[in-house]
Design a protein around this nucleic acid. Structure first.
Length: 287
RNA sequence: GGUGUCGUAGCUCAGGUGGUAGAGCAAUGGACUGAAAAUCCAUGUGUCGCCGGUUCAACUCCUGCCGACACCA
């Protein structure tokens, strides 16, 4: 048999951690995490990082290795994870287990991202400033001029997308769309996707319960200690932003907790929407 | 017991000189090429509390009843 990457995916709180540890032990593989938030060392309770015991049972990668103070991205993850995967295969592994719920990151590993230039932080900052003060519409003329193709194809009301496209056009002097190859990257290993799922009602009640447990475990204190970092993009994370607004006096603690549950449910729903269109996923219902 | 206000979508509430109703949130569906736990888009039929009356027509006006709240006893 050839080299194979098994990706265990599924909505938040479905039960990926336990499942992937078992799968990894069986395959003699470490667990390669594919989670855009568990990668940050500052957060642990709110991101449901694996427990110490779980981490001790199998070698994990990309768990709490980076700082929220440093921008991380799907592109960065693609590079980092691919090189790790290559080296693990080179050291004799035949099957590797990856797990996580970050759809875009998983996609980057499976299909690759095109090589699109990134704007520097000051360019992005100025575009973002214009976005928030004058609205998306104010960015349209520039995008239309620099990249009519993208202008015609993206959701123009999505400010983040417009800024991203515009920033690529400006730094490169070429249209954002010209960087898109329109074909998937080739990987020299097989990919098998296993999707974990549960009946929606049950998933939602697991989410609600997990948030209560997080609060018991001290999420409030953790969030308070992270207040100094709140401006970093990585802190735009469910479980923290709601508590930040509680600290600001914008809502009661109960309201903040309810909002965490709600936003987590919304997140799970978006994850399912993303994966629903992927026919290559082998779904397993956990009961 | 009396008086008053209210009773409209899962929730909070709009509305109409009488022509069977609409917002926010929730919920559901969707998008997604370096912020992705982010960001964005779409979808609103519900005995307008119940029974009767007036009317061509009542959720809207009127009688009564039930329920909630407030005040007075």
């Amino acid at each position: 048999m050839g080299r194979k990457l098994v990706i265990i995916l599924g909505p938040t709180a479905v039960g990926k951690t336990d499942y992937s540890i078992h799968a990894a032990l069986e395959a003699g593989s470490p667990v390669i995490s594919c989670d855009s938030r568990q990668i940050f060392k500052e957060m642990s309770i709110g991101t449901a990082v694996p427990s110490k015991a779980q981490l001790a049972s199998v070698r994990h990668y990309f768990i709490q290795t980076n700082s929220v103070t440093q921008l991380y991205s799907a592109g960065q993850y693609e590079t980092d994870a691919l090189s790790l995967i290559e080296s693990l295969f080179a050291h004799g592994h035949e099957t590797l287990v990856m797990t996580g719920g970050s759809c875009f990151y998983i996609d980057a590993i499976c299909n690759g991202l095109d090589d699109v230039p990134q704007g520097d932080s000051s360019l992005r900052a100025s575009l973002m400033a214009k976005l928030s003060s004058e609205g998306v519409e104010s960015l349209w003329p520039d995008l239309k001029r620099l990249d009519p193709e993208t202008f015609a194809s993206i959701e123009l009301s999505n400010g983040q997308r417009v800024v991203r496209a515009l920033e690529a056009c400006i730094v490169s002097g070429k249209p954002f769309s010209s960087f898109k190859k329109g074909r998937k990257a080739r990987r020299d290993f097989a990919i098998e996707k296993i999707g974990l799922t549960r009946p929606r009602e049950e998933l939602y009640s697991r989410i609600n319960k997990r948030v209560d447990i997080m609060m018991e475990e001290g999420l409030l204190e953790e969030a308070k200690s992270l207040l100094p970092y709140r401006e970093y993009t990585a802190m735009q994370t469910v479980g923290y932003r709601e508590l930040f607004s509680y600290f600001d006096g914008q809502c009661s603690l109960d309201e903040a907790v309810s909002l965490i549950k709600l936003n987590t449910r919304h997140y799970a729903k978006r994850q399912m929407t993303w994966w629903r269109r992927d026919p290559s996923i082998l779904w397993k219902t956990i009961l």
